[in-house]
Amino acid sequence: MIHRFANPTRFLRLADRIQPWAAGLTVVLGGAGLYFALFSSPADYQQGETVRIMYIHVPSAWMALFCYTALAAACATALIWKHPLADLAARATAPIGACFTLLALATGSLWGKPMWGTWWVWDARLTSVLILFFLYLGYMALNGAFDDPERGQKASAILALVGFINVPIIKFSVDWWNTLHQPASVIKMGGPAIHPSMLTPLLLMAFAFKAYFVWVLLMRMRGEINAMKIRAVRLRQVHAAEATSADAGAATGEAR
């Protein structure tokens, strides 16, 4: 099963079919989510209107963790099974995850200022998410740092896998340490502790972000497959040129 889509052409055909759905879902769910988030949901009794930041902050943070998990899974698949598309998937995922992590940090800061009285604190949750952001940047930098792309892939995949330890740390940081950040209220034992009027925009935005991820991921994988083919053609051209000059060298040798 895992090797069924190892063929880029077969993968691209599947991507062609999925991509319009992902694009449509992003627009429809995002539009509905924004309507509920900004117009059709109540202000919080404690936080007032600033609760509306939750509808973009929380889905961004979920995506930050989701993308890193996907990145680590793709890296493991690339290292263990040498699946030809796994490395491309990892490389396509990293910038999307980095963007969502940046958004979680930025929207969190804009929510923290009016609610906590500060833009930033060096507590466990915020610091571990900042580390997540640097892990994404480190992965991307290391991946492209070698002349031989295969070495870059291997080194960055190992970094991504070692960094995965940060994901459970982020998830449980609000339970393990004292922090300003509130604990989980949606994904927890005993069901969500959040009113349906607020859960609706939250889930709509979360699914819109997920659809956006699929949409952009497929676009970027298409670009990565092209880049791989370009590298292969270039390499063939170099080999052909070397063979011709070797032939020419042999010919002059004979002539002498």
């Binding site: 900004l38 202000a43 209107e49 600033t50 509306r52 930041i53 973009i56 958004l103 804009l110 929510w111």
Partner: peptide, 18 residues
């Protein structure tokens, strides 16, 4: 936005932009 426009709109703006 109940006096919090300076936080809420930039938050939505940066998400849209990024």
């Amino acid at each position: 936005m109940g006096g919090h426009a300076g936080y809420i709109w930039p938050a939505y703006g940066i998400v849209a932009l990024v």
